[in-house]
């Protein structure tokens, strides 16, 4: 349900990387996700490109269509407009960055069609 956002997007939240290093959510870099996925025996990082952004069925929600990984599988997710995604080389981005910053004090860029987001998949799933 896109109703409640998880607390770990709140500025100052402590995030543990796969190598055990601790970082604040606002300080995370693309490399942190890439290196953590490389270390992880179970998880693999995928590139998910934003193909479409439509208004969702729930209030304050959007429907985002991604093309995921090498196979460019089409996946749709419905999230609240302030839900932040991590864009490669850019950082946290959402469909309503002002709202994300207001709620989480997390600086945030605008998520746009064409942005490539970090996503995960289980190793060996395909």
């Amino acid at each position: 349900s896109p109703v409640v956002l998880p607390p770990f997007f709140m500025r100052g939240s402590i995030i543990q990387l796969a190598d055990g290093e601790l970082k604040r959510v606002e300080d995370l870099k693309t490399e942190d996700f890439i290196q953590s996925a490389e270390i992880s025996s179970e998880l693999k990082i995928d590139s998910s490109t934003v193909e479409r952004i439509d208004s969702g069925q729930s209030p304050n929600a959007v429907l985002i269509q991604f093309s995921v990984g090498e196979l460019k599988a089409q996946v749709c997710v419905e999230v609240l407009v302030e839900y932040p995604f991590f864009v490669f080389g850019q950082g946290w981005s959402s469909c309503c960055p002002d709202r994300t910053t207001q709620l989480f004090e997390l600086s945030c860029a605008k998520l746009c069609v064409g942005d490539v987001c970090v996503s995960l998949t289980l190793r060996g799933l395909r």
């Binding site: 770990f8 402590i14 996700f33």
Partner: peptide, 19 residues
Amino acid sequence: VPVFPWHSLVPFLEPSQSG
């Protein structure tokens, strides 16, 4: 202070979720 794992921050986008 709670510590959250890195992989909770980004979505699992599995093809099986399409459609």
